[in-house]
Design a protein around this nucleic acid. Structure first.
Length: 194
DNA sequence: GGTATGATTGACT
DNA sequence: GTCAATCATACCA
């Protein structure tokens, strides 16, 4: 049988508007050292967005967001979890896509061991869970996601994408900048219709 | 110098 | 449903 192979993404993919990249990332496969899965949930942020870390302009913490597209912005949240973002273009726009949930496909055993749970549904369902499962931490901050140990590739099947309000923020809740694979069982939470 | 606050999760009532 | 864990950053004195 014939089928197209997955296409690995390069830096140009990320050098576009943050919402466009966010939608296109749904259904792509993200792995770190061969461990990961299909991206099923993301959120978009930029420097015009009161809920974004980049809203206040460049600082030591968010410097990576204002750097080249395709690089990882990793930060600690609530003192105990890591969150993974992909910087998007153009350079200096302070925009990034928060990766919120994966459907596990590669290296499931390794992820189960790291997380200490075996249910696939919750293995990578949430930004903190996902980074734990893939062993992502501050050492990856600023690293290019289109080079080893990272890999992002577009799959042959593109899920239908739905949008809704973002999760866990108190500002700009009217913006529908959360994107998810419709009907996926691996989301951190169902997409609200608000 | 001190203090308030989160793009969260897991445990518990 | 409520709440503690735990710390880098931001902001105020």
């Amino acid at each position: 049988m014939e089928r197209a192979d997955p296409v690995s993404l390069t830096s140009t993919f990320f050098d576009r508007d943050v919402e466009v990249v966010a939608r296109d990332l749904i259904g792509a496969e993200l792995t770190v050292a061969g461990v990961g899965g299909i991206i099923v949930e993301v959120e978009a942020y930029d420097d015009q967005d009161p809920a974004s870390h980049s809203y206040v302009g460049p600082t030591l913490r968010n410097a990576v967001m204002f750097g080249p597209p395709g690089h990882a912005y990793v930060y600690r949240i609530y003192g105990l979890h890591w969150c993974l973002n992909v910087v998007t273009g153009p350079v200096g726009s302070g925009s990034a896509v928060l990766i919120r949930a994966l459907q596990p496909t590669k290296g499931v055993d390794a992820m189960v061991t790291r997380r200490g749970v075996s249910e696939l549904r919750t293995l990578c369902a949430g930004p903190g869970r996902l980074t734990h499962a893939l062993a992502i931490d501050s050492s990856h901050n600023g690293a290019p996601l289109f080079e080893a140990p990272f890999s992002i590739s577009v799959q042959e099947v593109k899920p239908e994408v739905v949008a809704g309000p973002r999760i866990g923020i108190s500002k700009a809740t009217n913006l529908h900048r959360r994107f998810a694979a419709k009907g996926s069982a691996y989301l951190s939470r169902p997409v609200s219709l608000l």
